[in-house]
Design a protein around this nucleic acid. Sequence first.
DNA 1: GCTAGAAGAATGAACGTTCATTCCGCATAA
DNA 2: TTATGCGGAATGAACGTTCATTCTTCTAGC
Lengths: 191, 191
Amino acid sequence: MTKPEKRAEVVRVALELIAEKGFHGAPMAMIAERAGVGAGTIYRYFENKEVLITELYRELEERIFQALLAGYDPDQPIRERFLHLGTTLLRFFVDHPLEFRYLEQFHNSPYGVEHRRDKLLGKGREDDIFRGLFVDAIVRREMKDFPLPILFSLAFGPLLSVARDAILGFYTLDADQVARFVEACWDGVRR
Amino acid sequence: MTKPEKRAEVVRVALELIAEKGFHGAPMAMIAERAGVGAGTIYRYFENKEVLITELYRELEERIFQALLAGYDPDQPIRERFLHLGTTLLRFFVDHPLEFRYLEQFHNSPYGVEHRRDKLLGKGREDDIFRGLFVDAIVRREMKDFPLPILFSLAFGPLLSVARDAILGFYTLDADQVARFVEACWDGVRR
DNA sequence: GCTAGAAGAATGAACGTTCATTCCGCATAA
DNA sequence: TTATGCGGAATGAACGTTCATTCTTCTAGC
């Protein structure tokens, strides 16, 4: 196995294990074993477990950002842009259960809260695409007049909740239901 | 300290510590110390840590159920019943941050998923109050026609999301905002 | 082209720490 | 005196991390 392959394999296994069993169900020794490398080898690529965890998070964030960007047209009407982002996001989660579960684990950890705090009170990144849309919508009076973070909760709270349940196997979402669901989210935020 | 006082104190401290630092940030020894009892004493009241955790969860569930019941009138129109349950729940969470954080921790643990699975596929308890309302609403065509669990996500996803952020201190919710927010949730589920 | 040696990468046993749980001596009340 | 409940030191399992050693790859000299 080449050097970059090893790193990638460690990251892949870490995603899988942590998504399935949580941070505390994924000891470094187990990650190493399943990745087919020595326990110490991981520390050649990541300073410690925390760095591995946050680095993996960053990579996921980037992939989602790219997925959202694909096919996004800033010139479309607000409603259409909202529907596009919502369905893309929900589909991404449903199609990538491991990634979704990982994000949830991360968000419910101290790292996640810290990270979130920075985002809400500072410069976003893929937030910008959401932030831009929402600010635009408020100015044009097409969305309810709530503070931005509250509007985010209103719009994406249902989305995350339904993705979680679908991924846990409580039910399945077909394409039509996804579309109708995101429209329902729109009903929640729109004026 | 009398016997029942000790038990109650252990439960109180466990709630506090676990809510603030998670299951893994709340070692039994620390719970014991802050509760003013010996480490071994906890095991006179709870077989092991898991039992303590699930027992505490059950007690919280019961308190929420009671809060929801107070002032609930099954004869009111669907919209009013929905608004009552929503605002009561959201207010309860905002007023009881420790309890909310504990519930979140629990839900994101293996116990929680198991528990949830039972609920969605079986007999509810305080669910009944929600289930009854929602089934009623669908039959009368006052809510969108989604499977029940999806409708729950649509209605309560935003609520949990906004409660979480408020409790983490990202913003504060006054009474007016709570009311308007729950109405926005209603916009999401209503036909 | 071949080989000796250096340099870098990988390894996994070992370490120190932390945790849930157990156990035994002690105190209190009968 | 005896019995009961309690405390907290002791225990052993599990973890993240380290480091002395081995293995691999590359370079340089012939």
